[in-house]
């Protein structure tokens, strides 16, 4: 302000017909998703997360092709080897099985369970949250009470009982996790819908005679996509965690199958003797968690309009 610059009239010139130009946008027009992508691209952490996910994903698929062993054949003569010999890149476990194979096979199973659980989360959570938020009133109150009950039962009791009923496998564990996991999802969807449904465009659509279904599916749900996507990226790691926890207390995947949680639980039993059996699966699990969290953070920053500055 204090700069001593002299302004002369020559520096200024009229821009002419204002009205015409006023409607014109100088900046290139960007859609919501494109905008989010631009933002996401600039987030270093998120990109690292994506890269890590890609690496783990590829290894879970192709890792097993990289040596001549398989995840289930035992060879007690070479049990608990920590060195990389004979293509056992990560050594062997207490049955002499190849850890490299088991870790990637386990990562695949863990991811399958997590994706399936989160898919169920989304289906149940969006439906219930959508109905609750859109219709409001009595229905909303009923659903909210119901959710409160679900939320207040220690989720383990539901899960353990379910696992006593069902054959414990990928599907049963995914269902068990989703059974209580949909609650946060439904809350997010409900809160968003509550906010959106009172907005003018919804009123307009309703006035024009659009059905509930149409309003929900065409107007509301697409606008809730952002928060849902964010919630999904955070639900996946918590589902992986929960699977690991279930395996740890002996209720998850059953050996000789493998999941990251089961491998960690097996490794934990011999931590003091052969730490490598715990180290590798724990490392992969941790990196996986980290990657999902980084991506989730990145997505939240990119999609959450509240954060736009």
């Amino acid at each position: 302000m204090s700069t001593e610059k002299t302004y002369t009239p020559e520096l200024f010139e009229p821009i002419g017909q204002l009205e015409k130009r006023a409607e014109q946008l100088n900046r290139k027009q960007v859609g919501v998703w494109k905008d989010a992508w631009l933002r996401f691209r600039q987030n270093k952490g998120a990109l690292i997360g994506v890269a890590l996910l890609l690496v783990i994903g590829l290894l879970a698929i192709f890792g097993p092709l990289m040596n001549d062993h398989n995840w289930e054949t035992q060879n007690l003569a070479i049990k608990n080897q920590s060195a990389n010999i004979d293509g056992h890149y990560m050594g062997t476990d207490h049955f002499g099985r190849d850890l490299w194979q088991r870790v990637w096979y386990g990562a695949k199973i863990s991811l399958e369970i997590a994706f399936l659980a989160v898919f169920l989360d989304v289906v149940i959570g969006v439906t219930i949250g959508g109905i609750s938020g859109y219709f409001g009133g009595r229905i909303d109150m009923f659903i909210q009470r119901f959710i409160e009950v679900i939320y207040s039962i220690p989720n383990l009791i539901i899960i353990i009982m379910l696992l006593m009923w069902m054959e414990p496998g990928i599907l049963a564990i995914a269902i068990a996790i989703a059974l209580t996991g949909w609650v946060p999802m439904s809350r997010i969807v409900r809160a968003q819908i509550l906010k959106l449904r009172s907005q003018e465009y919804v009123l307009a659509a309703r006035t024009l005679g659009a059905s509930h279904k149409r309003i929900l599916l065409k107007h509301l749900i697409p606008n809730v996509m952002g928060p849902i996507i964010i919630a999904v990226t955070f639900s996946i790691p918590s589902a992986i965690f929960f699977e690991a926890f279930l395996s740890f207390i002996g209720l998850g995947i059953r050996p000789p199958e493998a999941s990251l949680g089961l491998l960690i639980s097996e490794g934990n039993q011999i931590l003091q003797l052969f730490p490598h059996v715990l180290l590798w699966p724990a490392l992969v699990l941790s990196v996986l968690m980290l990657a999902f969290n980084l991506v989730g953070d990145g997505l939240r920053d990119a999609l959450d309009p509240r954060m736009k500055k």
Partner: peptide, 18 residues
Amino acid sequence: SIIGVSVPSFVLAATLSY
């Protein structure tokens, strides 16, 4: 916070104890 979110508490517990 990264350790807290990405390392399961039972791994932490076992490691701490040992």
